[in-house]
Design a protein around this nucleic acid. Structure first.
Lengths: 152, 152
DNA sequence: GCGTGCATACTCGGATATAAGCTGTCCGAGTAGAGGGGG
DNA sequence: CCCCCTCTACTCGGACAGCTTATATCCGAGTATGCACGC
């Protein structure tokens, strides 16, 4: 199990966007975090497709959060970048092979699938309990705002 | 984020092993579940390396659980097959780029890393709360035992 | 009848191809703003 | 002085390679069993 590295970038970008006054372009976000601009653009597109950020084209354009930072959870960002598909997918092998269970016993979900689903639910619940605003509150926004205000 | 498909196979195999009387070879486990024997062997080796199952060589050999089914959690199996490394790895990009935070502010873990770690902890806690014995209790072991008893 | 040695068939284990997904990069379409010209 | 047009520079968006990881397979090393032989 592995989470895409773009998730970390995207979360940091969302925090920056939450403190920014106007649109912030991809190149700026990349420079602020010291990461590849081209690759970061890919993930920002995912955020845009998920409706978390809104792109503004043309000069002085960039990305802006579509909602208040307190209304965007970490889970929203993770699912936007990494996909919302469950990590564990039951292939119903209990219905295959020599000890295939009869279909009438398979009305309830497989016990293994159930545990996995419960675990993922707990995981998602934790992530959905923290918002971008919460993340921004944990760090010193003074330096962030000053750097954002600086033109270069 | 995606969990290796071998995790499902391994969990089903552990349930079967918990009900078996003696060693069960790889080929048997593969036939019982209708999956590839060669590929299943790879995962069983992982279980053996993790110390969850013990291999017996030679004729009439196979795999046996090293512990009681009630002492093997789902988390044990998942980590044995999929690895124990955390899914999210913080690359400390808060210390890179234009808005790099000074090192003295980085004594506490990054807020993003903390949320991710909490979520994974919740995920692991759920998985460690269920054992192989619990899984076996959720299904009808009558058919399983009968099939295991049958030689072919 | 009993112990010993051997041949056999079966087991696991690691080394090897193939496919998929993540990582990283590039260039083109489209647009908002700035500047110059005309009224 | 104000409005309009054009031109530019900048933005996002999707299409294109490289590489690590997961998937699937095969064959070889090692061993417990069963049998045949000798005592």
């Amino acid at each position: 199990m592995k989470i895409s590295g773009g998730v970390e970038w995207s979360l940091h970008c969302c925090v920056v966007l939450s403190e920014a006054e106007g649109p912030v372009p991809t190149a700026r976000l990349a420079d602020l975090h010291g990461v590849s601009k081209s690759y970061l653009a890919k993930h920002l597109q995912s955020l845009a497709r998920a409706g978390l950020v809104h792109p503004t084209e043309g000069r002085d354009g960039g990305y802006v959060l579509t909602r208040a930072p307190g209304d965007i959870t970490v889970l929203d960002v993770v699912q936007a970048v990494d996909g919302a598909a469950p990590a564990f997918r039951c292939t119903e092998i209990r219905q295959q092979g020599l000890l295939a269970a009869p279909p009438e016993q398979c009305t309830t979900p497989c016990g293994i699938a159930k545990v996995m689903a419960d675990a993922e639910r707990a995981w998602r619940d934790t992530l959905s309990g923290v918002t971008i605003a919460d993340l921004a509150a944990t760090l010193d926004v003074t330096v962030l705002k000053a750097t954002l205000a600086a033109s270069g």
